[in-house]
Simulated assay, not measured.
Amino acid sequence: MKKIVYGLFFGDSITYGEYDSVFGGWVDILKRYALQKFHEGNGDELILFNLGIGGETTEGLLKRMPVELSARNSADGNLVFLSYGANDLAIKEGIQVVEPEKFKNNIIAAVQQAKQFSNDIYLVSILPVSQKIDGVVVGSGKLRTNREVVAYNEILKDIAAEYSLGYIDFYAALFDDKEVLLSADGVHPNEKGYGMMAEIAIPVIEKYL
């Protein structure tokens, strides 16, 4: 008998797929891929939920996570993806939105919540920012640096290792070609960038199809 597994993608506007008018972002590409595989009659059904909210930090995640997890809980199992940090690390009016130690504690708390529903939890790296906005205050009033991106990614890697979680390293994959793979705002991927992210993530979800 085939199983129905849910995949829950928590994150910000990059999870949501902002600025991708072609594919709808990397999570939506994965949704279509999983559906296609199911219709081909291969294996179990994997239903993916895009729970990305633009501008969200780990503070917002902790507030809504219990409700979201309870509402989408498959008896056959759940996958949980946590994709945060791009908004947490931003500096606005001289203050970091969510400081590193708080970010670390928030991610650990989120992992502990997710563990009540899932044994398959993945942390997703923060993307690099374009050279043109690295250290620059942009129109939203936020300032981001690749130095901070690396520091926050190290926190995610350490947590993944400590709690035996999966880690999806989009940062390393996109860094060298970031000027080509990021959109004009220098933060969000363009359709090429989102497509590459999906290619990297497909082998992860393949295990559950």
Rank of each mutant, 00 (worst) to 15 (best):
D134K: 06
P100Y: 06
G43R: 05
E18W: 07
P66M: 09
K31T: 00
E18C: 08
P100G: 12
D88G: 01
L62N: 09
V204W: 11
E99R: 05
Q131T: 13
N87H: 01
A160M: 02
R72E: 11
T15R: 07
K31R: 00
Y33L: 00
D88A: 02
I53S: 04
A114Q: 01
N105L: 10
Y16C: 06
A34H: 04
I121R: 02
V136I: 07
N105D: 15
A161V: 11
R144Y: 00
E18V: 11
L209T: 03
K102C: 11
L82C: 06
H188G: 05
M197W: 13
M197A: 09
E191N: 14
A151Y: 09
Y163H: 12
V80I: 01
G186C: 03
K178L: 06
G60T: 10
Y152F: 15
D177W: 05
I29N: 01
D12R: 13
L30K: 00
I159S: 07
H39R: 09
T57C: 09
G25R: 08
A34D: 03
S130D: 10
A86Q: 11
G54Y: 07
E59P: 03
V138E: 05
R64L: 02
V138T: 10
R72V: 08
F10T: 07
S183L: 04
L79N: 07
M196L: 15
I133Q: 02
S130T: 05
Y122L: 11
G85R: 01
N105V: 04
K92I: 13
F9M: 06
P128E: 08
K115E: 15
N146S: 10
G7D: 12
A75Y: 05
A173W: 04
D120A: 14
E191H: 15
S140N: 10
G43V: 02
H39F: 10
S118M: 08
A184M: 09
P189N: 10
I205C: 08
I200H: 09
T57Y: 09
G195Q: 08
D177N: 15
V136L: 03
L48M: 03
D177K: 15
G24W: 05
M65E: 14
N87M: 02
D76P: 06
S83P: 06
K132L: 07
L69Q: 00
N42K: 07
I29V: 00
K37A: 12
V150A: 12
L35V: 05
E99F: 04
R32N: 03
V22I: 15
P128Q: 06
I91N: 00
T57D: 09
K192A: 03
D28H: 01
E191I: 04
N106G: 12
A184T: 13
I4G: 04
N42D: 02
E148N: 15
S164I: 04
P203E: 08
R72T: 08
L127F: 12
P100R: 10
V124S: 12
I133W: 02
A172D: 12
I133M: 00
E148A: 14
Y167M: 04
M197L: 11
K115Y: 03
I4H: 14
H39N: 13
L89R: 09
